[in-house]
Design a protein around this nucleic acid. Structure first.
Length: 569
DNA sequence: GCCGTTTTCGGCCCGACTGTTTTCAGTCG
């Protein structure tokens, strides 16, 4: 069972208790506990197995610890089962309507006996709700529209998509006369894999101008709310964006506040309290006196901390780095010297070897490996041994004729469902760079998956395991891998591992990448480009590595090819 | 329900916006 699943039990429990009108602090305790579990990077199942004292986790006391053990061991939680019987699912669904929270749902269910979304909508349409004290026409309208658009909300978006929209709007707001500073904040600035909504921060002498410009922006379809300092809009792709306008002297504090994460900020706020200070989005205050706030650095410094790169602000690694006095210099896009995973027209790419090499050269790369698919991937016109050897001859010819970049003979070789490799060893050994990957049979049981990975890792000609879990973000989970065993084997046999930079893969993820670093495994960041434009996703791989706290040294392809070879078997 | 060398009881991060209000509750991030 995944940690997020266990957290979901507590969140559901909190929802149900909230509708019932239970003690709000008790509810918050469950939510805090759930948040802790979601951000706990070690598997709880394992912690329970190993009898780890769960109350050492923040926000987990005797009661929640006991409940976690029960969930792990029995797959259910008695209290939750009981509550579910008392509150129908239709009532819980009402919480998903924007602007509707537990108090209103409580009224709907306990006073009006409404227990499905459908009935709620009918009641709103019939004007039944406006008869209750505290409710009016607007609330009814919000409910009708909210229920209609329920399927559209709660969506998450790829970082790549969200960031493109946010950057364009941010750049346009920066051009306004009254705008001094503008920055994208929130999970987008932290470079999370997916983004739920966007946060944009602006300092301006005239908040009206910025808000008007946003309201009239070509990417905005609707203004959802507007006040003096805050405006919420919906963009053409459905994502919602919050604009906040703050005074210039509060810029740093506001950027910190709106970048989050919530967990990171809570630590900062507690730290402020310990020093008899108060931290909010307007600054760090001693009583009413502003003591810091213009820049993020200033706020951190006043709290006796060094500045934390946004990618690390998850209350996971960063405060450990602070304590050790070693905030790492995270890897940057410019550090990358080579790209070792890409396709050409020989399989399912859209460009020739020459075109890929030219595009790579323009990006400042010194070497690339052409790694087309092997024959198992028939859909992509994968190569058999014979075609591959000819393809490699062609690569050698192009390499001879091309100046300024080295083109290596590579292959993305499938690890077949039965655990063998898609190509023979005496073919693989002729190449410069062999990637082994899982594409098929991802749903096999852990034991079988591990057997396949072990074969590949132990093969003397396999240099790297590509996109190890095979997950596709927002689409499908990856294979069930014992990550610890996998990484240990990779370390033992000198097989490198990949962070695949495509925004729908980002595989390894930050937790696995940090674990790989722990074991001293060099990580390779590759684009898996299928066209020259495909190189543009490299930044997302870099972000993922940064979120894992990785430096230039941890990434193999920040080295020259000659240096990199020394890391390989 | 959690937490703590100020506390084992009495607190719990904090501010903005909306809608329904004549001073505030509910919701959200």
């Amino acid at each position: 069972m995944r940690n997020s699943e266990i957290a979901a039990y507590f969140n559901e429990l909190a929802d149900l208790l909230e509708i019932q009108g239970a003690n709000p602090f008790r509810i918050r305790a469950y939510r805090n506990g759930a948040r802790t579990l979601e951000s706990t990077k070690v598997e709880l199942t394992r912690m329970v197995e190993e009898d780890f004292d769960l109350t050492e986790l923040p926000g987990i006391g005797d009661d929640l610890a006991e409940k976690i053990v029960a969930i792990v061991q029995t797959g259910e939680l008695k209290q939750l089962t009981e509550l579910r019987e008392k509150v129908p699912t239709g009532v819980v669904d009402m919480l998903r309507i924007p602007g509707i929270g537990p108090k209103k749902v409580h009224t709907f269910y306990y006073e009006l006996k409404i227990d499905t979304l459908e009935h709620l909508k009918q009641a709103a349409e019939a004007g039944e709700l406006a008869k209750i004290k505290g409710f009016g026409k607007k609330t009814e309208q919000a409910i009708i529209e909210g229920i209609d658009s329920l399927d559209l909300t709660n969506l998450r978006f790829y970082l790549a998509e969200a960031k493109t929209y946010a950057d364009e709007i941010c750049d346009d707001l920066r051009k306004l006369k009254s705008v001094k500073q503008a920055e994208v904040a929130g999970s987008c600035r932290r470079r999370k894999e997916t983004v739920g909504d966007l946060d944009l921060l602006v300092t301006s002498s005239d908040s009206g101008e910025a808000m008007d410009a946003l309201a009239n922006h070509s990417l905005v379809t609707k203004v959802l709310a507007r006040g003096d300092t805050k405006q919420r809009v919906r963009l053409t792709n459905g994502i919602e964006l919050d604009l906040r306008v703050v005074p210039d002297e509060s810029y740093g504090a506001a950027l910190l506040y709106f970048t989050g994460s919530k967990e990171h900020n809570i630590v900062l706020r507690r730290r402020a309290q310990d020093r008899d200070l108060k931290l909010n989005e307007y600054g760090l205050f001693q009583g009413d006196k502003l003591v810091a706030g213009k820049t993020e650095e200033e706020v951190y410094k006043t709290l006796d901390l060094v500045w934390v790169p946004p990618e690390l602000r998850e209350n996971w690694l960063e405060f450990g780095f602070e304590e050790a006095g070693q905030m790492p210099e995270l890897v940057e896009l410019e550090d990358i010297k080579g790209d070792l995973h890409m396709h050409t027209t020989a399989s399912d790419g859209t460009a020739s070897i020459e075109e890929m090499a030219e595009a790579a050269k323009k990006q400042g790369l010194k070497y690339i490996a052409i790694t087309d698919h092997s024959k198992r991937v028939t859909m992509a016109n994968g190569l058999d041994g014979k075609r591959l050897l000819k393809h490699w001859e062609e690569i050698d010819r192009v390499n001879e004729a091309t100046k300024g970049i080295d083109i290596l003979k590579g292959i993305e070789c499938d690890i077949l469902e039965d655990g063998t490799l898609d190509l023979e060893d005496d073919v693989l050994k002729e190449g410069d760079w062999v990637i082994a990957v899982l594409h098929y049979g991802l749903k096999q049981p852990r034991k079988q998956i591990m057997k396949r990975l072990m074969t590949a890792i132990q093969n003397p000609y396999v240099h790297m395991i590509g996109h190890p879990t095979g997950r596709l973000i927002l689409k499908r989970p990856g294979a069930d891998i014992d990550m610890d065993e996998f990484l240990q084997a990779a370390a033992d046999h000198g097989t490198l591992v990949e962070i695949n930079a495509h925004f729908s893969r980002l595989d390894l993820n930050e937790v696995h990448a940090a674990a790989a670093k722990e074991k001293g495994i060099p990580i390779v960041i590759n684009t898996d480009a299928h066209s020259p434009e495909g190189f543009n996703v490299r930044q997302y791989g870099i972000y993922q590595a940064r979120r894992a706290g990785l430096t230039k040294d941890d990434i193999a392809n920040t080295r020259t090819w000659a240096q990199m070879k020394k890391l390989m078997k």
